[in-house]
């Protein structure tokens, strides 16, 4: 499913603009760009934001005592025009036309304005079978700390793979290998992905959020605590 369009691209990753405002894949989700030669490039969502289309203008408060949250968007339909949601993905590998996953950087960045797709379960399962690409995430130097990104990605994939414990254990070991020189960072990741600790019930598969795009705001009930439906824009 098309969820965005590449608006900035480089060898190590790309920025995409979401199809609809406030609708972006969760942190750590696997996304794909179909390349013109039949290959597929895979990225992991590393950052997301919603801001004004005009970078020079900051958003201003629009709520009143009576109108707030989702209702603001109903009151100000122009917001859909002047705001946009973008997300950044780190390229973690690609699959050639033969479909075989390769956990290293592709030779070329994805073309600008190509579609960014969300990956279905089968694709996620196939690409993440071996955790070799974790190294790329662990070395990332974006806005989000590498260990947070790794943890978010592992949680997403674990969920997408139907709570595959064997995969999670292998992933844990791979992270331990990558962060063996920094026990504190390692512990941060491991504790965040420990299935024995029921602290993350983030439904990473339900990232199709409700919200301003269909004008229903926070009232459609789909935007829960972890959704973005009640983000005050």
């Amino acid at each position: 499913m098309r969820i965005g369009e590449v608006i900035e691209t480089s060898t190590v990753g790309f920025w995409a603009e979401s199809e609809r405002l406030h609708q972006l894949p969760p942190l750590g989700a696997l996304v794909a760009v179909a390349l013109p030669d039949g290959a597929t490039l895979y990225g992991v969502v590393a950052f997301g934001q919603t801001a004004g289309v005009d970078a020079g203008r900051r958003a201003v408060r629009r709520g009143t005592d009576q109108v707030f949250d989702g209702a603001i968007y109903d009151q100000h339909p122009e917001l859909l025009r002047i705001l946009r949601t973008t997300f950044q993905a780190i390229t973690v590998g690609y699959a050639g036309p033969d479909g075989r996953a390769r956990h290293h950087l592709p030779p070329w960045p994805p073309p600008l304005h190509y579609s960014v797709q969300e990956c279905d379960r089968a694709t996620v399962a196939a690409f993440t079978e071996a955790p070799g690409y974790f190294a790329i995430l662990a070395a990332s130097e974006g806005e989000v700390a590498a260990e947070q990104l790794l943890a978010a990605h592992i949680r997403c994939v674990y969920d997408r793979r139907g709570r595959d414990t064997a995969w999670l254990n292998a992933a844990g070991q791979q992270v331990a290998r990558l962060l063996k020189r920094d026990y504190d960072r390692l512990l941060t990741v491991l504790e965040a992905i420990d299935p024995g600790v029921e602290k993350y019930e983030v439904q990473s598969t339900k990232y199709e959020l409700g919200g301003a795009a269909n004008g229903s705001g926070g009232e459609n009930g789909r935007a829960g605590k972890n959704g973005y439906g009640d983000v005050p824009f």
Binding site: L168, N169, G172, Q173, V175, A176, R177, K180, Y183, L186, L187, L190, E191, I193, D194, P195, G196, V197
Partner: peptide, 13 residues
């Protein structure tokens, strides 16, 4: 209490 952590550390740490 975390067998997961112990398993993850086994072999690397």
């Amino acid at each position: 209490s975390s067998s997961f952590l112990r398993a993850a550390l086994a072999g690397t740490h």
